[in-house]
Design a binder for these strands. Structure first.
Lengths: 115, 115
DNA sequence: CATAATGTTCGTACATTTGCGAATAATTAG
DNA sequence: CTAATTATTCGCAAATGTACGAACATTATG
């Protein structure tokens, strides 16, 4: 009944944000490309990916807004790179999230009831 | 021109799937709850989370479909746990994805042009 | 058996995401 | 200056995601 407005922690929002950026295979593929080639022009990626040019721009925007990549515009070309600091940060956040999902004692089946 | 139909790798799809499961703060919060308490009933979580019961069911379904949790139905109660094997696997996949985004040589600014 | 407790499913509403081609902007090349 | 190159933005359509309450199913309780 205590009608406390519950929201989520900063950390939970942050994880969700990074996860959202990775939540489409083409965006994972983009990061793979950038990770392997250091930097790529939009056109280089467009050649490798099975999507229209305009769609690629949209996905790049999502990754950029999430902070995982950065773009350097020098028209008519645009060069994209991984944003190393944030990329590292994302990796650490996920690492921490997944490590030791449980440190408590277990029943025989490895399960504990709660409350 | 070689109109090769490009899709994504299994790994890329897998990452995107797990990421998608984490792409909403309430689902991160659910995993936090399960990680800390080992197992929880639906009702326990409903008390902690600012969403309707039916909405919680939907989010639990997403996590279950992604393989990150498992549910044991014994009506009228349902007990959920983290799916340890898959959870671990997800952690490893993300670890691997984020580690060493770049092992190549760098220019002075830490950037290489490609192609 | 009737009622309560617990969750899921259904139906609906609304917002967001994804995708494409066309139009646009900005520079380079002829 | 004109045309070509490159990438973004716009407008649209289709699909998906999020959220809720109501209806339903299943078991426990009186």
């Amino acid at each position: 009944m205590s009608a406390e407005i519950k929201k989520f922690t900063e950390r939970q929002e942050e994880i969700a944000n990074f996860a959202n950026a990775l939540a489409h295979p083409v965006r994972v593929a983009i990061l793979d490309l950038l990770a392997s080639k250091a930097c790529c022009y939009h056109g280089d990626m467009a050649d490798e990916l099975p999507i229209a040019n305009s769609t690629l721009s949209q996905h790049l925007k999502v990754l950029k807004d999430a902070g995982l990549i950065q773009g350097e515009i020098s028209p008519p070309k645009t060069k994209y790179c991984i944003h190393r600091d944030n990329y590292k940060k994302a990796g650490e956040i996920f690492s921490f999230f997944f490590e030791n999902p449980l440190e408590t004692t277990f029943s025989e089946e490895g399960i504990i009831l709660c409350s």
